[in-house]
């Protein structure tokens, strides 16, 4: 693997700010389009980014997404602060969600966030503690 990114961007994401949800994914999508990346790769990247953004907004007290483009892959790192995921195995199950009813009424909290990330990324790694959650997703070009 080549270890120097061609492009690297860090995006700060605030908790509970639904009005800008999707902005990071949209920016990354535009950048990838300009670079001529294959539309299927762009779509997969946009989906995993969007799910990461939403998760940070709904479940954490804030965090960041680090986007890195390498010659052979895209890496998305999602890092948030507190309260973490107590049972990762359960959280990975389709349909399982701890989102509030209020959030669900807006169409979020389908329990498909982590499963979608796992499905669309070629590699998916998750670590969580009471301090926060770290997710690393790799999509090969």
């Amino acid at each position: 693997m080549i270890n120097i990114p061609i492009k690297s961007d860090t995006y700060i994401i605030n908790a509970n700010d639904f009005s800008v949800a999707g902005k990071v994914s949209s920016d990354i999508k535009k950048d990838l389009k300009k670079l001529g990346i294959h539309p299927k790769i762009i779509r997969r990247t946009a989906i995993v980014c969007y799910e990461s953004e939403i998760n940070i907004i709904i479940h954490s007290i804030g965090g960041k997404i680090v986007f890195e483009l390498y010659e052979d892959r895209i890496v998305i790192n999602s890092e948030d602060r507190g309260p973490g995921i107590s049972d990762i195995e359960l959280a990975m199950k389709e349909g399982y969600s701890t989102a509030t009813n209020e959030v669900r009424e807006l169409g979020f909290g389908a329990g498909m966030g982590l499963p979608n990330m796992n499905r669309w990324a070629d590699e998916f790694r998750i670590e969580s503690s009471s301090k926060g959650t770290l997710i690393k997703m790799t999509i090969f070009l």
């Binding site: 989906i47 969007y50 169409g107």
Partner: peptide, 17 residues
């Protein structure tokens, strides 16, 4: 086709074209 009208439907629609 949806009954959601929240601002975020636009982010979703834009992202998946």
């Amino acid at each position: 086709i949806t009954i959601q009208t929240h601002l975020n439907i636009l982010a979703v629609a834009e992202l998946i074209d």
